[in-house]
Design a protein around this nucleic acid. Structure first.
Lengths: 290, 290
DNA sequence: CATGATGTCTGACTGTAGTCAGATATATTG
DNA sequence: CAATATATCTGACTACAGTCAGACATCATG
């Protein structure tokens, strides 16, 4: 019972029966699961019918019927898409928004109830994050984003916080050479955020310079997503982007306190070079020719 | 997106879609989910039809039909229960055992595949244990068991290992006054194991003495099950058992390195007393009058 | 041994999810 | 503008899960 496979299977059993209960509770508002899922997808901002169908994996016939039943209930309205009259766009009516809010409240209460069972909330949450990340890691997308976007700023905040915890002397952004946002935008560079569902779980910046090379900056992976080789994926995508921008040489600096990072660089074709800047924090310097 | 409730809901979404895939894969052997569940319940040693029905939460009519379909496939045989001919007992035929083994192999492969995604297996497993324990903690049963049973010995082994890690000087059972198993059996005492599914996740011993009191020994809760107030439940059940045995006074010893334990005792009506034995490890002593 | 309780089974039924073929309206392309 | 592609809808169908009432055999009890 204590070998790894049994532990995974115990988890599966526990979760399967809990999810079963969760599904039934969706029926708690007198509506079949399929219709409830469509209503919630619309409530969460998916309006294009084809998109919902794709997201929920439904047959077009079934989707059509589910929409019709929600319309009959007065919860949803559909209209032709303004650019293409074949496509339909679904929106919630006032009653639909009310009903959606009721589902949201129900889900929130359920989540709170679950957390209340346990006196060590943070440990439970961290465990949930870890498993959710593992389950969804094939669906993580690496999206180019503006370094000033909310998602990017979230990642950077977490990154700085972690440096503060891991460097003996702490970390003060203002002392470091904080890259200018415009150096991490095309065409000089780029900024990439790893998104799991709607949660930003990692980032990396490619910063253009005028010295004949570009720099990799701010590589960060959320603790819950570590071990999934996301750092490697972020680096690969950034290198591809750099090649696309015609960049021939990459450099980066890091600190030996960040052991995983150093390992990653060495394993993926970077070579250590002498210090090439006067930033007070880094003590390790790498470059890679593309 | 980062408040606790959102994190729980993200976990729910991730797990719901994974479980959906898992359910469908049960159909991968050309058999409806219901029949597959019954087959697997029988394979896992549940033979009494009423027990299976109860475990899977099925209607008696449905259960009957599912059994019939498995019989038609030649996978299951049912016979009258030898003590009560109204009850039926289901057993797997040779073909049934083969089919069950195929499901097992499938589940194991799936579990291994999941673990393989992540380079930090132990962290993922610990997270799964924690969540499984939280989800199933209402279903944890506290069973009286022999202190020499496999379950009890597992718990004691974990307990000693943990003392070794938490005591500065380590822990050597032979130096401690290891209770005689017969002092933790009725009528002198008892031994209680907390079982989650088939996994032992906690224990406590009630050790009878000839000094006018009984002792609480070996209170342990698995790391993954901490925070669920299981220690409290174990203590409550043991006190009830002690009352049932006519015991009027309980004592216990512990070590200040085990802070949670000390807190638990103080909060549940125990009072500190002077040392009452010469065991080298404990430095805190309590008693409670029933 | 009659009576009621229990465990299982059968038949008749419902609701939901899902599939498939074809109809309809709109877009795109040569 | 004709031919084709695309997005949705409708009707007809199947499979599965689940419910309910009642039949039947067996057991426990006074």
């Amino acid at each position: 019972m204590l070998d790894p496979v049994s532990r995974v299977r115990r988890f599966n059993r526990a979760v399967t029966s809990a999810v079963g209960a969760l599904d039934t509770s969706f029926l708690g508002r007198g509506r079949p699961l399929g219709a409830a899922r469509v209503l919630n997808a619309i409530g969460h901002g998916r309006s294009d019918v084809a998109e919902i169908r794709d997201y929920l994996g439904l047959d077009s016939g079934l989707m059509s019927r589910l929409l019709r039943s929600l319309e009959d209930e007065g919860l949803v309205e559909t209209n032709a898409h303004e650019d293409d009259a074949r496509r339909r766009v679904a929106t919630l009516t006032r009653a639909g928004r009310r009903e959606f809010a009721a589902y949201e409240a129900l889900s929130n209460t359920q989540a709170e109830g679950f957390l209340a069972q346990h006196s060590q909330r943070e440990a439970v949450l961290a465990a949930m994050d870890l498993i959710a990340s593992t389950l969804t890691h094939e669906r993580v997308t690496l999206d180019e984003m503006d370094p000033r976007s909310e998602e990017a700023r979230h990642c950077l905040g977490e990154y700085y916080g972690e440096l503060g915890r891991r460097f003996k002397q702490g970390f003060d952004v203002s002392l470091s050479r904080d890259p200018d946002a415009k150096d991490m935008r095309r065409p000089r560079g780029t900024f990439i955020v790893a998104m799991s569902d709607t949660l930003p779980i990692g980032c990396v910046g490619l910063k253009g310079t005028d010295h004949g090379y570009a720099e990799i900056k701010r590589l960060w992976v959320a603790p819950a997503a570590r071990g999934l080789r996301l750092g490697r994926r972020l680096m690969d995508v950034t290198e591809d982007a750099a090649r696309g921008l015609g960049i021939k040489l990459l450099r980066l600096d890091t600190n030996s306190a960040l052991a995983e990072a150093g390992q990653l660089y060495r394993r993926s074709g970077w070579s250590e070079i002498p210090r090439f800047n006067d930033d007070p924090y880094p003590d390790l310097f790498f470059e890679k020719r593309l």
